[in-house]
């Protein structure tokens, strides 16, 4: 049920992959933020990344999405190497509220599609579908300021979803939400993943979230972030937040925690 760090490589062509990726930030105090990291995302899998705070999880997402260039190594998506731009087919959801306050929910969701040259009726159909899917139906004419944080994050997810991405990258999208909302949003995310068939990479600091949602979980070390453990959860594709009562869930979470504990202590030592 679990896989060691060594056997990340899989037989089939990976959907997205990182090869020897390193990210350093220059400046007065240069920081080695990430790597070297090797990672292959299987097509259609739900992959979570956990790690101590400041370990370069967000940097990993940056590099994988094409928002940031790696200092060394290569990143590829669907066989093509990224060149400093977000490729078509990749959608990103950020931790912060990224809804556009000057647009209604409907216009927020339609924002990306309006530029694609898709005809009006198809645009409208896809927008309405994404809005309905994320349970925003009755708020379509609302502005983000009239919505709660959880609803705003749904708007951002719907805005990404409507573009029909094949790889969805989420950077702690529920980080700012309360625990109940997180669990429910987790279920929504699973539903979205199942229905779209997309590959999902979720960055989270919540071990239970990672254990509950993922097919595989990668554990990162303290900075510079590297993968120190990789777990296969073995959950069936049809699953929801009720897996938390499965005995295997407890075992997974404690395995994650034992991998992470030493690394988290290092981070705290550094901070003190």
């Amino acid at each position: 049920m679990t896989g060691g760090v060594g056997d990340i490589a899989v037989m089939e062509e990976p959907h997205a992959s990182l090869r020897g990726v390193v990210r350093r930030y220059g400046g007065a105090q240069p920081v080695h933020a990430l790597g070297p990291v090797d990672l292959d995302l299987r097509r259609g899998e739900f992959f979570s990344v956990v790690g101590p705070s400041g370990c370069g999880k967000s940097t990993l997402l940056d590099v994988l999405s094409g928002l940031g260039r790696p200092t060394g190594g290569t990143v590829s998506f669907e066989g093509a190497e990224l060149g400093g731009e977000v490729p078509d087919g990749v959608g990103v959801v950020f931790q912060e509220d990224a809804s556009f306050p000057w647009l209604t929910v409907r216009d927020n969701v339609a924002f990306g599609l309006r530029r694609t040259g898709l005809d009006g009726r198809e645009t409208a159909r896809r927008v309405e579908h994404a809005i309905g899917f994320m349970g925003l139906g009755q708020f379509a004419a609302h502005y983000p300021a009239q919505l709660s944080g959880g609803m705003r994050q749904r708007v951002c997810i719907a805005r990404t979803l409507v573009m029909q991405p094949r790889l969805i990258l989420l950077d702690e999208p529920f980080g700012a939400l309360d625990q109940q909302t997180r669990l429910l949003m987790g279920d929504e995310l699973l539903r979205l993943w199942r229905e779209t068939g997309a590959t999902v990479l979720l960055i989270t600091h919540a071990l239970d979230e990672a254990a509950m949602l993922s097919d595989r979980v990668g554990v990162m070390s303290a900075r510079p972030g590297r993968f120190i453990d990789l777990l296969e959860t073995g959950w069936p594709r049809e699953r929801d937040s009720r897996v938390v009562s499965d005995p295997a869930f407890g075992a997974l979470t404690s395995r994650l925690w034992s991998s992470l504990r030493t690394e988290s202590l290092k981070t705290m030592g550094r901070a003190a």
Partner: peptide
């Protein structure tokens, strides 16, 4: 994050 969103789109 708004500018990052624009780039991601």
């Amino acid at each position: 994050v708004l500018v990052r969103t624009a780039r991601a789109m």
